[in-house]
């Protein structure tokens, strides 16, 4: 399945059957389907996808697959914006961009809660992707793109996120003793002038533990007169102290090039929200394309690691 494509257009190479989910695959009417996060659960591929309904707000629906490529979408949404309880007033405009991390025997979903008060990061938990329990709102407004490390580091849970101060979109790192109260925040990765990611960057895939460090696949944007271009990049963080950036790939690992990435509600966007590393070393990166459909691209994990060192 996996081919080395060093001479190709991107380090990640697209599955030839892309896109894997489009509007016509949905069992109910909706506007778009994108930005899904994958897990491998009991040998099955589960993809928690963001669906934007016709009315204009987003919610999550589960898709299931035997092979990681051909998915069947469940008829009933998995998680919809809260309409009562303490979460309701922060989800009045929807829930977006889930990221799943398996830690301590359960799955945690970080997602973006949207309301008139702004964007903030919320935490939910599930054991089976059928029942989801909301745990807490874990950021103030003005923050999104939260991803959780799959294990504690230095005795603390660790997350990456993207606060937006003065319009500077950098990736930050915060720590928590209990997943609910967060602090010790530090700036981790800023946009880079003169590169493909000079405008804003944000965490995309929950960090993956490798022999060379924590691999973080992030998104970077470049602003143009026609709007932003969203690409995916890779950065390697120190295992013991992930505030140390060991290597940052000079070039994007995936750029919008195919029609389904160029054309859609928000064109010129590839936006990963998760990846699965197979036992043979292949990595499957699931990404939303043009805020309109879901696609998948693969590589050898070892190739991605080499990209780090130029």
């Amino acid at each position: 399945m996996t081919r080395n494509r060093w001479g190709g257009r991107d380090l990640l190479h697209r599955w030839e059957g892309n896109p894997i989910l489009i509007l016509e695959d949905m069992p109910f009417p909706c506007n778009t389907v994108f930005n899904g996060t994958p897990v491998k659960h009991d040998g099955e591929y589960l993809l928690l996808i963001r669906v934007e309904g016709q009315r204009g707000y987003s919610f999550f629906t589960l898709a299931r697959s035997e092979d990681g490529y051909h998915f069947t979408v469940m008829k009933k949404p998995a998680m919809v914006p809260a309409t009562n309880g303490p979460f309701a007033k922060y989800e009045t405009r929807g829930i977006e961009d889930p990221r799943a991390t398996f830690i301590d025997g359960t799955y945690y979903i970080l997602y973006t809660a949207v309301s008139e008060h702004g964007y903030r990061i919320a935490l939910a938990q599930t054991d089976d992707f059928e029942k989801f329990e909301r745990i807490a709102m874990i950021s103030e407004p003005g923050n999104k793109d939260g991803v959780l490390f799959p294990e504690k580091v230095g005795g603390y849970y660790v997350r990456l996120d993207r606060p937006l101060g003065l319009g500077v979109g950098s990736i930050w790192l915060s720590r928590s003793p209990d997943l609910i109260n967060w602090g010790d925040s530090e700036m981790l990765l800023p946009p880079r002038a003169g590169y493909w990611d000079p405008f804003r960057v944000g965490a995309s895939v929950p960090p993956i533990r490798t022999d060379k460090g924590w691999l973080e696949i992030y998104h970077g944007t470049k602003m143009t007169s026609a709007g932003p271009i969203y690409r995916a990049g890779a950065v390697m963080l120190d295992i013991e102290d992930p505030t140390i950036v060991l290597h940052r790939c000079m070039v994007p690992i995936l750029s919008p090039r195919e029609d389904y990435e160029r054309i859609g509600d928000v064109g010129n966007v590839v936006f990963p929200c998760g990846a699965i590393v197979e036992p043979d070393g292949e990595i499957k990166v699931y990404y939303g394309a043009a805020d309109t459909c879901m696609a998948v691209a693969t590589a050898n994990l070892s190739d991605l690691l080499e990209c780090q060192t130029e």
């Binding site: 007033k89 702004g118 807490a136 709102m137 950021s139 609910i180 967060w182």
Partner: peptide
Amino acid sequence: ERPWEGGSIWISYSDDLRHWGGSEI
């Protein structure tokens, strides 16, 4: 405090004055 986004006053809580959560408008 006053997070920039939304221009409202918020409250947050902490057990140790270091890790904060439970933020509400």
